[in-house]
Design a protein around this nucleic acid. Structure first.
Lengths: 152, 152
DNA sequence: CCTGAAAGCTTGTGCCT
DNA sequence: AGGCACAAGCTTTCAGG
């Protein structure tokens, strides 16, 4: 593994996690580097695959979703589940897991009827257990490199 | 609720979800609007809270994390769990939920020892059930407004 | 990694529909 | 109200050191 993040790379990543639209010049100003130096480092981080892309954090409520649910599913066929999820943009994530269940789905919902429709569709594929999300934290918090973490 | 996303707003959001660093000019070019018009729309979307921020999508593997886990927890005190999660950056999300468990934790791990340390810490707060994530999908896919979704 | 210059981007004002 | 055009000031992106 070639990842060798120095202090500058870590600062750049930290700043971009809080605001990915900061200009190279602004990033440079904050860490005392010129903009070409910052641009070159970011180009390298993208090329190495450390940076996978840049996204916008949307407010799901403002998009018309009133709540979220986590659905544990046991299915006959992962392929069937994948293709179902593929065509349903309200599926925020599908995690295939070890354990009692095959997968955990994270979905955004606009109404109880919407949830009911989804559970009905999942019923065709296997069995499910649903939990409604009351609150979420840290979903968009900055992520540190593992070597920054001390596990006591 | 004042959100009234027209076709231009939806196109801007769709493009920015795939690459939040596109310039206003480039966005304008792709949707046939001038850059001041795009800038004004984005400013409004930010002000309305539709756009909460811009983030960088990082490759956890390249940051030194080799796997992820989903941990269902039942705790005596949510406050205790929150303050523990607060000081642990490897916690990617904490979802408080209805159902059999109090919360679901999504964590990034660098080793089995790391997971063990986390489970030990959680053991002080309550009980937990762990599933290792085998694969994840759609975590960074574009999110459509709810009115774009037809639930059959 | 820095400087410096050319090309391109952002952002303000003013006008038009 | 919202978009367009233009211009001043920044930013990006090269080159060369």
């Amino acid at each position: 593994m070639n990842f060798e993040l120095d202090a500058y790379d870590r600062k750049i990543l930290a700043l971009m996690q809080e605001d990915a639209r900061l200009s190279y010049s602004e990033l440079g100003r904050r860490i005392h580097l010129t903009s070409p130096a910052v641009a070159e480092r970011i180009r390298r981080l993208e090329e190495q695959g450390v940076i996978r892309g840049y996204g916008v954090q949307l407010n799901l409520r403002k998009l018309g979703y009133s709540f979220e649910a986590l659905i544990q599913v046991t299915v006959r066929s992962h392929a069937e589940l994948d293709s179902w999820a593929e065509s349903h943009p309200e599926v925020l994530a599908v995690h295939a897991t070890t354990g009692t269940y095959c997968a955990l789905l994270h979905v955004a919902l606009c109404s109880p009827e919407h949830l009911q429709a989804i559970l009905k569709a999942l019923g065709e594929l296997g069995t499910s257990t649903t939990s409604v999300v009351l609150s979420s934290q840290h979903e968009t918090r900055p992520r540190l490199p593992a070597d920054q973490i001390r596990y006591e």
